[in-house]
């Protein structure tokens, strides 16, 4: 079982990340997944998060307890959630938006300039898709094709290609980062 928290600020598409991941894995990836999001005033403007549990068996307990993977796309969200990341867990951040203060020794940290890449592709609104591509590459949680299959219906039709492009950009960057790491 893998517990994942996506975090950032409201408007970045943080909820959408977990919806894409959950839909992809449960419908096309042969896994069970349960997705939850934070409701309430804290979701507006400030730190925002969504939770995804992925398992080979049916997920029973509906919430994450200590995430194996933390994705942070804002400093505030990173600071709010970084302590709960499991030992030997995986931290994924937006390079330009999150500056880890004191790096935890017992975790793996990868970062991607998701928002910068998205801006280069023409719209920062697709930063979450760059992040999902990168996330897919470094976690190897499923194939990029499975992830992209989930996009229709979750992103506006007229932006589907752009979203896929953003995903691919993040995915390729993720593969490069992994390659550098092993060299």
């Amino acid at each position: 079982m893998t517990e994942i928290r996506f975090s950032g600020y409201g408007g970045q598409g943080i909820i959408r990340c977990a919806l894409i991941g959950g839909k992809a894995l449960s419908i096309y990836g042969g896994k069970f997944s349960t997705m939850n999001q934070s409701f309430g005033p804290e979701a507006r403007g400030g730190a925002c998060s969504s939770q995804l549990i992925v398992s080979d068996e049916r997920v029973l307990y509906p919430y994450i307890t200590r995430p194996d993977i933390l994705v942070s796309m804002s400093q505030e969200a990173y600071e709010k959630y970084q302590n709960e990341l499991k030992d030997n867990g995986l931290l994924i951040t937006d390079t330009d938006l999150v500056k880890p203060k004191t790096e935890r020794k017992n975790i793996t940290h990868y970062s991607v300039p998701a928002t910068r890449f998205a801006e280069e592709l023409g719209n920062r609104i697709i930063a979450n898709l760059v992040m999902m591509g990168f996330f897919t590459a470094v976690t190897k949680i499923t194939t990029p094709d499975v992830m992209k299959k989930a996009l229709p219906g979750l992103v506006p039709d007229r932006f589907l290609d752009l979203n896929k492009k953003a995903f691919d950009k993040g995915y390729e960057y993720g593969l490069e980062v992994l390659k550098e790491k092993t060299q």
Binding site: K23, T34, N36, Q37, V59, P62
Partner: peptide, 10 residues
């Protein structure tokens, strides 16, 4: 309940 109502699953 709220948990099931707001939970996404297949």
């Amino acid at each position: 309940d709220e948990c099931v109502g707001h939970m996404h699953e297949k």
